[in-house]
Design a protein around this nucleic acid. Structure first.
Length: 880
RNA sequence: GGGCGAGUAGCUCAGUUGGUUCAGAGCACUUGGUUUACACCCAAGGGGUCGGGGGUUCGAAUCCCUCCUCGCCCA
């Protein structure tokens, strides 16, 4: 075998990905095996791979590859999300750059452009995921606006409408004046902004008195329809029932009373603008106030804005402050920080706005989803880490109706058809034919035709399609009893970020129970956010996000995968640093180099197996089993960083550091066939457990070890089975490694080169097994290992437990005083330790109250310490 | 303003019902080593009054109280 000394990531990763694809290993069909299903959190169709995607798709791939090795029918469904607002914004911007205004286009024309955009850029991110090694079933790639998925969305809308969950309401919504659409509450991000508090005087009708209010939004005075005071506030008691005059527009408005007003804030006197503030709207409804909307849809002022018509609200804020000041209405301006809602997508400041929108009633629908996650006795959906249950509870128990309409074209058009101008003059139907029929029934007008119907121009919120994702990708909405949905659903694990716990995860659970009466998935792994070393979020604007593909080029996909997982416990933020990838690459290098070593060996069938190799093989098998059990435990808790760390240590320390060093034949000497066979077997087991994390290099080595048919590829190999761990053997070996370390220390302290053979004598007070003597001899380059009852003069010593070891060295190197000092210190420490143990044991309350096991342990400690002290004292005596 | 969570080695974090897996891991650091698979390596080491204070207990990183400092979610 001619193996290159270095591993070339680029070439090999491409080769094996193609091989896996060619042999359809990622593809899943319904069969008799147990299914294991993950649906990808669909990234935005026009998105580009960033660190967050890398992390969460690596985790999914680890889980799916492991399931495949465990013999399950692993199915990972990939796809993308149409991301209505983000994509539409991009298309609008692109058209604008070409001199085309969206408003000049018809809906059909615009959608044509949008689909062109999708076909050009859509799915780039999926190609990038392939570079990472993602073993998705690409034949199943879905898009939230595929015909079948869109039909599912419409079907669900109609169904929920018919069940009375969807209604149309004139409500205060979050308005994004830049995208000119509403947003759900979840899409609004509150930010602290430095602003001003303006104190403005209103004249009181029929008196010379002025009343001063404080507001952060002076531009809305034009829309004021009342002044509100607190009925308990004596300062304003005399104003009850009076009227005030709005500055500039000189309208008379009532002074109303409501306990809602905070007496402490500002002047304790509030201006009420029902069209532009949610709380004011509530007050307005309660007190029957007029509503004056002064804004256009782009948040410039409309004709109610008088001479400010056409100007932006922030411009008007400055100008009106100036006018108020000039006319003597402005009392003062104070600095004030307040929270401002901004759009998650466009960053524009949100305007509360009254409009007709579609809403989904959530309270009833949420009930099964609350129970599924929070029930103590029967938890059907588990969140990892558990701490997110509290967040989930808080949101679900205070859930508000979901505004599902968006004033966008890119998305599923709301299937409501209007036949008149009245508030109730509409029907909801899956298609126009049904709508005509329903409209005829509703109106009693048999002559009504399709031409008389006007479909609602709004589209549905993107999340209204992605909440069906785990069902719709298997066509479970349109064909609820089809073979695939019955087989793959409920899915097993969902891996996503905590930022979309409400947007997506909670709603999928809701939809799952409503439409399948089953959870959509069993476990939810919430990853942390990827931050940079300074704990800043990775973002484009900060420029602190590394180029994902470049990382893969530099460190290899395997290296990046391991790097990402090494320091990312579930739910913890990941402080990303490129050196992590270097560490990942280092592991690959280590494995490669170990393989390279075995490839150099010449195998001899003549040679007998050395005792040391035989013992080492037994030990490594035991150690492997112990690690395997640990790994299983970590997996069961979704602690993937602990899984990879266990494997990392197994390979670096146990396999390479100890095992290979023992079985390695001397330079240019052949290895016996039995040992070689066992080494290769253990190597293969290592590759299997490493494969989910480093799929490429493991497959490459697997295929170099032996010629394999496609059926024998590592990706579909059989995961090692767990067996009972031989703890005794492991403990005995640990003792031997302590001896080896002791010898190494003596070599180092005395500048004895490893090439130089030495002798070792042992007083075996502990009566340890001699099974590992051959190993100790080999690893320490010992000529003679002998057992004795006496101190050896002219030697340096060390102790493991109460055993004492002597390495004879030349007289020049022996400094009796130093030895004495060293041993005295060791003795002092051990005596101190003994004292503390004995103090505990002489405490009656401890002996009486502590469990027997704990007392026994303390007694063992005492005995060990006593034995060691005896050894140390003997050493001292012999030196003096 | 309301809720949740976290403070353990220089850094990132483990540490399950209080007791040998209780003071740990990886990285970083120091020292030594071109030993013939790997310097992307090996070996040996140093380093923490477990955020502060108080309490319960035979025994506290772990339970309780209090203070301090951060983070997240919601309004």
């Amino acid at each position: 075998m001619n193996i290159p000394t270095k591993y070339n990531t680029q070439e090999i990763e491409g080769k094996w990905y193609d091989y896996w694809m060619k042999h359809n290993f990622f593809h899943s069909e319904v069969d008799d095996r147990e299914p294991y299903t993950i649906v990808i959190p669909p990234p935005n169709v026009t998105g580009v791979l960033h660190m967050g995607h890398m992390l969460n798709n690596t985790i999914q791939d680890v889980l799916i590859r492991r399931a495949r090795l465990l013999g399950k029918n692993a199915c990972w469904v990939p796809g993308t999300d149409h991301a209505s607002i983000a994509t539409e914004a991009k298309v609008v911007a692109k058209l604008k750059a070409q001199g085309i205004e969206k408003n000049d286009l018809t809906r059909e024309e615009f959608l044509k452009h949008a689909w062109e955009w999708k076909h050009e850029y859509g799915g780039i991110i999926l190609e990038q995921l392939k570079k990472l090694g993602a073993s998705c079933d690409w034949d199943r790639t879905a898009f939230t606006m595929d015909d079948s998925l869109s039909e599912s969305v419409i079907k669900v809308f109609v169904d929920l409408y018919n069940k009375g969950y969807i209604y149309r309401g004139y409500r205060m919504v979050n308005w994004d004046p830049e995208a000119k659409t509403t947003l759900s509450d979840e899409e609004v991000i509150y930010e602290e902004r430095q602003g001003n508090l303006y104190y403005i005087q209103y004249s009181v009708v029929g008196s010379d008195e002025k009343i001063t209010i404080a507001t952060t939004r002076p531009e809305t005075v034009i829309g004021d329809t009342a002044i509100c005071i607190n009925p308990t506030d004596e300062r304003y008691a005399h104003l009850r029932g009076k009227k005030a005059i709005v500055p500039i527009c000189n309208r008379e408005i009532p002074i109303i009373e409501d306990t809602y007003v905070d007496v402490e804030f500002g002047t304790g006197c509030l201006k009420v603008t029902p069209a532009h503030d949610e709380n004011d709207k509530n007050l307005g409804d309660k007190h029957n106030l007029a509503v004056i909307d002064i804004f256009n849809e782009d948040a410039t002022l409309n004709s109610f804005g008088l001479h400010y018509e056409g100007k932006d609200r922030f411009v008007v804020r400055k100008e009106i402050a100036k006018e108020l000041e000039e006319k003597g209405y402005l009392v003062k301006i104070e600095q004030h920080t307040n929270k401002v809602g901004t759009s998650e997508r466009t960053k524009a400041v949100i305007e509360p706005r009254l409009s007709d929108q579609w809403f989904l009633k959530m309270e009833e629908l949420a009930k099964p989803a609350i129970k599924a996650v929070l029930s103590e006795e029967n938890k059907e959906v588990k969140l990892f880490p558990k701490k997110f249950e509290n967040t989930y509870r808080h949101w679900m128990e205070n859930i508000r109706d979901w505004n599902i309409s968006r004033q966008l074209w890119w998305g599923q058009q709301i299937p409501a058809y209007y036949f008149g101008d009245g508030k109730e003059d509409f029907v909801v139907a899956e298609n126009r034919e049904d709508a005509v029929r329903l409209a005829q029934e509703k109106t009693g007008n048999k002559d009504l035709t399709a031409a008389d119907l006007r479909q609602d121009s709004d589209a549905l919120d993107t999340w209204f399609s992605s909440w069906l994702w785990p069902m719709s990708v298997f066509d479970g909405i349109r064909n609820p009893e089809n073979e695939e949905i019955n087989y793959y659903y409920p899915t097993n694990d969902l891996v996503t970020g905590p930022d979309i716990l409400f947007f997506w995860v909670a709603r999928m659970i809701i939809a799952g129970y409503e439409y399948k009466d089953k959870r959509p998935f069993e476990n939810v792994y919430l990853t942390g956010l990827v931050r940079d070393k300074q704990r800043r979020k990775m973002s484009k604007s900060l420029g602190n996000s590394p180029d994902a593909l470049k990382l893969i080029e530099t460190y290899g996909a395997d290296g990046v995968r391991v790097g990402l997982l090494l320091s990312s416990a579930a739910g913890n933020d990941l402080l990303f640093d490129e050196s992590l990838c270097q560490q990942g690459k280092g592991l690959g290098n280590k494995v490669w180099s170990a393989f390279y070593l075995t490839s150099l060996w010449e195998v001899s069938t003549e040679l007998p197996q050395p005792e040391s190799s035989k013992v080492a093989i037994e030990w490594y098998k035991a150690k492997f089993q112990k690690t395997l059990a640990e790994i299983e435990d970590h997996y069961s808790k979704y602690r993937l960083s602990d899984v990879i760390m266990s494997i990392y240590k197994l390979i670096y320390d146990d396999f390479c550091g100890w095992f290979l060093e023992v079985v390695k034949p001397n330079y240019q000497q052949p290895i016996d066939a039995t040992t070689y066979r066992e080494v290769i077997k253990t190597f293969e087991d290592n590759l299997k457990i490493l494969h989910p994390f480093m799929p490429f290099i493991t497959e490459e080595i697997w295929q170099l070890i032996a010629k394999r048919s496609p059926e024998e590829a590592l990706i579909i190999a059989k995961y090692p089975e767990g067996e009972e761990t031989n703890e005794t053997l492991i403990a005995a070996f640990d003792f031997a490694t302590d001896v080896v370390s002791g010898v190494r220390t003596i070599r180092k302290e005395n500048n004895i080169s490893f090439k130089e053979t030495i002798d070792l004598s042992v007083i075996n007070k502990e009566n340890t097994s001699t099974d590992f003597d051959t190993i100790i001899k080999k690893l320490c380059n010992i000529e003679n290992l002998s057992y004795t009852d006496n101190q050896i003069e002219g030697s340096k010593s060390f102790r493991v437990k109460s055993n004492e070891y002597f390495v004879p060295i030349s007289a020049d190197n022996i400094n009796v005083e130093e030895e004495l000092k060293k041993i005295s210190e060791e003795l002092k420490y051990t005596e101190g330790f003994l004292k503390s143990v004995q103090k505990k044991l002489s405490n009656e309350r401890f002996v009486n109250n502590a469990p027997e096991k704990v007392v026994a342990i303390e007694k063992k400690k005492e005995a060990d310490a006593l034995a060691k002290i005896e050894t140390l004292k003997n050493s001292l005596a012999s030196l003096q």
